[in-house]
């Protein structure tokens, strides 16, 4: 068993990169008081726009920017409705998920003969994938921690999640800070989508995010809105996902349907028990 976990570890580390990036993005958004249920649709859209950009330009880097651009477009919709119009964040997020699923499915099918989806995508090498893993697992968490807990901007951002009225009363605009948080989230989720379709996988497929966005939302809560917590949560989930394939390969008689449910059960248990009573940012999900 121990040996299997050790073997699964490297797989878990790079296979959970898209999840991790999404988790990091959602952490920033939630710290600023927004719960972005539309993160699943944001990632799916980014996965598609990344393929578009990479195929048209022939470059992976362009693909990354394409993914970020797609996520930013979705963020603009989310922000317009939830920050500008102060519409309910969960309703908006739900609509965005449906929109992204319907629209990417529609475009993918209308363009199925197009070279963009037929030709194989530019290849991301093993070295690049390792670099991406290091950036996602080490560099970005450090940067995020510094930003959130060491800068005045981070302090105000967090205040927007806790006491938006106090922030507004003391001068800075809550809306501007939430927009900034949303942009940071979109950059990270866009990178997640690009990683998913260009590095972890080789191309786009309908609904290829397969619930990663929803898992990301849960992990942020499991991590109790702390960088260390979310890293741990992503690691637990990533290892559970990798391990269940190793278990399947080892034991043929195991009911794989139940194994497939493990990551979700683990997340649910994590949400309710092991992490202790959860305390969310005070104004999470509410408008200012």
């Amino acid at each position: 068993m121990i040996e299997m976990i050790i073997q699964s570890l490297p797989l878990a580390i790079f296979a959970s990169v898209p999840l991790l990036l999404a988790v990091e993005g959602e952490l920033v958004a939630e710290r600023a008081g927004m719960i972005n249920l539309g993160i699943e649709g944001m990632m799916l859209t980014a996965a598609m726009t990344a393929v578009f950009a990479a195929q048209i330009s022939g470059s992976i880097i362009a693909g990354l920017f394409g993914g970020i651009a797609g996520a930013l477009a979705v963020a603009a919709i989310f922000g317009f409705f939830s920050i500008r119009l102060k519409a309910d964040q969960i309703v908006t997020g739900t609509a965005i998920n449906l929109l992204a699923l319907g629209l990417t499915g529609f475009v993918y099918r209308e363009m199925q003969q197009s070279a963009i989806f037929v030709r194989s995508v530019p290849h991301v090498g093993a070295a690049a994938e390792n670099a991406i893993a290091i950036v996602s697992w080490i560099v970005i968490p450090i940067l995020l921690s510094l930003m959130l807990w060491m800068t005045a901007f981070g302090l105000r951002l967090r205040a927007c999640g806790e006491y938006p009225r106090a922030v507004a009363a003391s001068g800075p605009s809550v809306a501007m800070h939430r927009w900034a948080a949303l942009v940071i989230e979109a950059v990270l989720v866009g990178a997640a989508g690009a990683d998913l379709s260009l590095a972890l996988s080789s191309g786009f497929a309908e609904n290829m995010t397969s619930g990663r966005g929803f898992i990301a939302l849960s992990i942020v809560i499991f991590g109790r809105w702390k960088t260390r917590g979310i890293l741990l949560g992503t690691a637990v989930f990533g290892i559970a996902a990798a391990l269940q394939y190793a278990l399947q390969a080892m034991n043929q008689s195991l009911q794989f349907h139940l194994l497939l449910a493990i990551p979700y059960v683990v997340t649910l248990l994590i949400l309710c028990g092991i992490a202790g009573k959860v305390r969310a940012p005070e104004s999470l999900g509410r408008d200012a």
Binding site: L217, H257, A261, Y264, T267, L268, L271, C272, G273, A280
Partner: peptide, 26 residues
């Protein structure tokens, strides 16, 4: 879970969807 552990039902209900789907598959 909401009352007992303050776990947001938005997320727990979504997770329970996935679990139900796999339960049915089983």
């Amino acid at each position: 879970l909401r009352v007992w552990r303050n776990a947001p039902e938005v997320l727990t209900t979504i997770l329970l969807n996935f679990i139900a789907i796999h339960l049915l598959g089983y």
